[in-house]
């Protein structure tokens, strides 16, 4: 990689564009993104500020939000029933805004049912509560196999689900997204809501792992 250097900007620009300090020319698709965006902004179809704001929104969404929802559901039975009734309004109660038109269905894991989410057609994911999906969620092996051999898929994540537990795989769409409500691990009765939230990982809310608790390590 070449050394970073200050890049003089002597041309006028009334719109933002690629980073001011660059050490290589943008690639073809990077140029295409900038060109499409700037053309649409010039046509006043939206403002540059909307893109900036949305980047901030994307940066603000992490699995910590979903973990907060899960921990609340574990500690507040009334909240949990409202959440299972309507995932979106349940999350909104905790101040998590939905910046898109998607509905959220929260799927509760129980001793009898383990849930797994996938998007076979593309990469639909509960982004308002988990942020952007990991690459493996968007790649063929997971999308192709989760629906017909979920137990084998789960084994690859180190998760063994007993044969007498039903596995339900939910396939997301452009407007319906899912979030798994994992089972609260045993031995966590003494933990408060924030401590519980710390146990909850992104992959547990996708359903590829279970939430674990090691009292010795804690």
């Amino acid at each position: 990689m070449s050394e970073q250097h200050d890049h003089d900007h002597d041309h006028d620009h009334d719109h933002d564009h690629a980073p001011i300090t660059v050490d290589e020319k943008p690639g073809y698709f990077d140029l295409m993104e900038t060109a499409v965006r700037e053309l649409l902004i010039e046509r006043k179809l939206f403002g540059a500020d909307e893109i900036r704001r949305q980047i901030e929104v994307l940066d603000s969404r992490t699995p910590a939000l979903g973990a907060k929802v899960v921990a609340r559901a574990w500690t507040d039975a009334d909240f949990k029933s409202r959440l299972l009734e309507n995932g979106r309004t349940g999350c909104e109660e905790l101040g998590i805004t939905f910046y898109d038109d998607t509905q959220l269905i929260v799927l509760e894991n129980t001793p009898a049912v383990h849930n797994l989410i996938v998007c076979t057609l593309c990469s639909c994911y509960p982004r308002p509560v988990l942020g952007l999906p990991p690459d493996w969620y968007k790649l063929k092996p997971y999308r192709a196999r989760a629906v017909y051999e979920p137990r084998a898929v789960l084994e690859e994540f180190g998760t063994s689900i007993p044969d007498d537990v039903e596995i339900r795989v939910s396939d997301s769409t452009a407007i319906i997204r899912y979030l798994v409500l994992p089972m609260r691990p045993v031995g966590t009765e003494h933990l408060n809501e924030a401590q519980l939230a710390d146990l909850v990982t992104r992959d547990a809310m996708i359903g590829v792992i279970q939430v674990g608790y090691d009292r010795e390590a804690a």
Binding site: V118, T120, L121, P134, D135, W136, L139, K140, P141, Y142, R143, A144, R145, A146, V147, Y148, V153, E156, F157, D171
Partner: peptide, 12 residues
């Protein structure tokens, strides 16, 4: 591609 044969999941 749901239901297609596919390889191991690389957790990239």
């Amino acid at each position: 591609i749901g239901g297609d044969e596919a390889g191991k999941i690389e957790r990239v």
